[in-house]
């Protein structure tokens, strides 16, 4: 396939740096092992706040210029104060951000200019699961749907290929579609 010159396309993604990183990790695979973390404090009821700062990567602890905060709560229909999105909504948001970020990176690599991209994400949950009413109903999403609206200098098939590749290389898509070992302990 022939692509346009990626240098003439600007989606704000530094693909040259990413390709350089691939080369470096090929030489030193241990540097590619990252550990991300979040510290979550319970505030009150279902209200909590995560603080996200440093992470481990490139063989050492990495500091950021600032820390970030993500709050979560439950809505009024669950008798909560609705001060922030629910945790499952944050999961949907994480999926959407992962796929749209990936979309821009793949488009940049393929020399495709994005003009706009929006992912509408929906997840279905039967709350009988989390309320412990029916053991046959799972707690989590029974299905997640992502619908993209994309305006780009590309054919329909090229856009379909961008969307497919963004899923293929997405961390959150992988986390949601494949089982992950989760260990919870008390320090």
């Amino acid at each position: 396939m022939t692509y346009a010159d990626p240098k003439l396309v600007n989606n704000g993604v530094n693909t040259e740096a990413l390709i350089g990183a691939r080369g470096a990790f090929e030489q030193m695979p241990a540097a590619a092992s990252f550990t991300f973390r979040s510290a979550c404090d319970w505030i009150e009821g279902t209200y909590s706040r995560n603080v996200i700062g440093g992470f481990f990567g490139l063989g050492e602890e990495q500091k950021r210029r600032r820390t970030f905060s993500i709050e979560s709560d439950h809505p009024a229909v669950f008798a909560a104060a609705d001060r922030a999105p629910t945790p499952p909504e944050i999961v949907l948001a994480a999926l959407a951000s992962c796929l749209t970020g990936g979309l821009a990176a793949v488009a940049q690599h393929r020399g495709i200019q994005l003009r706009s991209a929006r992912a509408i994400v929906e997840g279905d949950i039967d709350v009988q699961g989390i309320l412990g009413m029916d053991p046959e109903i799972r707690n989590g999403f029974s299905a997640i749907r992502v619908t993209f609206e994309i305006d780009a200098d590309a054919t329909e098939a090229e856009i379909a290929a961008l969307v497919a590749q963004s899923q293929k290389r997405s961390a959150v898509f992988d986390i949601l579609t494949n089982p992950t070992l989760v260990e919870v302990s008390v320090a």
Binding site: M1, A157, A160, A164, Q165, Q167, K168, F173, L176, N178
Partner: peptide
């Protein structure tokens, strides 16, 4: 346990064939 990403594996396969 099986991946929930089957639809994308099939989509990628169709795209490859069509290319």
């Amino acid at each position: 346990l099986f991946s929930g990403g089957l639809a994308n594996a099939a989509a990628l396969s169709d795209l490859k064939m069509n290319r």
